[in-house]
Each structure stands twice: as structure tokens, then as C-alpha cells.
Nucleic acid binder design. Structure first.
Lengths: 93, 93
DNA sequence: TACATTTATTGTATTTATACAATATTTAGT
DNA sequence: ACTAAATATTGTATAAATACAATAAATGTA
């Protein structure tokens, strides 16, 4: 199915899938916690559409992480790279 | 004009108006910088609707401030209260 | 292997964010 | 007070987020 449309928003990348998996949650469980349909979580994880700002806040609150850590306009690095990066910064001191 | 609708998102509060005014910008100017119609800025400042996540990011980037400082699900305190609060915290040390 | 759970796919419907136009009202500058 | 600029109001149109249903595919487990 093809859609003809012009784009208003940039594509957003996110870490919802990894964060959810690290907590051993299913999409259904996460969906219930953040108050959306479980299929909506699927769309978000596949980055097929961007969450509303409120939904981004609910996800951020759920994981206890700032929005900017979970969502980005740039592709997000795997968590392991983030760790290495932080360790290196620490090592410099 | 009345609309009948069920609500999916919480109302979001924001500091767009004050932040813009502190920079001495008009809505039109801000609108150009963040790439929306100037009337959209009006809607946002009046909190008549929530921005998309991408727009929130663009606003955040424009002001150089984290999303959580500009947007909140709770009514936001005036900046002056924020300052007093921070000064008190500093005084405690 | 069979069964159950999770995830993906496709399709339709509704709500909300955004654009844009036209006019009214407010505010600031002379 | 007059004028220009900024903001508000109202209305219509489109795009994107979300819900929901049904089915298919994948994955895990007895």
C-alpha cells in the first residue's frame, strides 16, 4: 500500500525496544503501563511513527530516563557503545 | 464552536511564550526558526494543543534547553521561582 | 511436534497537530 | 489619536498518531 504525502516531522529514532527487552517486558505489558494499545508499541519500536509528546513523557517516566536519552533525531548508538564512551570519559580523569 | 471528542493525551504546559519574550522575538520570528506557521506558535503558547515530539525537539534545540525544562505535564512555575529555588539549594551548601 | 505467546502485517476509523486564510482585537510607537 | 505590528479568533483542510480487528509469521516451551 502506497501513500502520497508531504512530511512535516523528521523521523525519530528511539530505544524503546531495547529498554523494554532489558526489563523483560512484552509489548503488551509495556503498552498497559504507558496506556496505549499494544500494537502502538509495535509501531513505535519499528519507528513507523513518532509518539506524541505526552506519550514520549509517559515512556520517559516509565523507564525513569530523560526523553533525550530515549528519543533522538539521530540514529541512536547501542547501549554498549554508550557505556564504553562513558568509561573512556571517566578514564581520562 | 464545540467539539465532541475523547482525550488521548494529557494537557501539556510549556514555557515557550516566556522564553520567546525573553529573547525579544515575535511569534513570526520564532516560527521561522523552528519551521512552523506563526499561528502554530500561537496555539502552542496558549496551550491549545501539544506539539509533536519532533517540534518539541526543534523548540528545545532552538532555546538550547532540555525538553523537560520547557514542557511538562504539571503547570510550570515562573522562571523567577525556579531561580529562588536554585539559590536556596546553593545556600544550603 | 504441538501449543501458546509474541510480534508483524494489513486495513479501517478516529483524534490531534499543523497549515493556511480572513478578520478582529490588542499593543506599541509616532 | 493614528498607524503599524503583534496577537487572537474562527473556519476549513491535510497529515500524522492512535485504536482496534483480523490474520500471519515467528519464537519459545511442554
Amino acid at each position: 500500500m502506497y501513500y502520497i504525502c508531504s512530511m512535516r516531522s523528521r523521523k525519530m529514532y528511539n530505544r524503546v525496544a531495547i529498554l523494554r527487552q532489558e526489563k523483560g517486558m512484552s509489548r503488551k505489558e509495556l503498552a498497559e503501563k504507558i496506556g496505549v494499545n499494544f500494537q502502538t508499541v509495535g509501531y513505535l519500536e519499528r519507528e513507523e511513527y513518532n509518539p506524541s509528546l505526552d506519550l514520549a513523557f509517559r515512556i520517559s517516566e516509565n523507564f525513569g530516563l530523560p526523553i533525550e536519552f530515549i528519543f533522538s533525531t539521530e540514529p541512536l548508538k547501542p547501549l554498549i557503545e554508550e557505556i564504553i564512551h562513558l568509561k573512556n570519559k571517566l578514564g581520562e580523569l
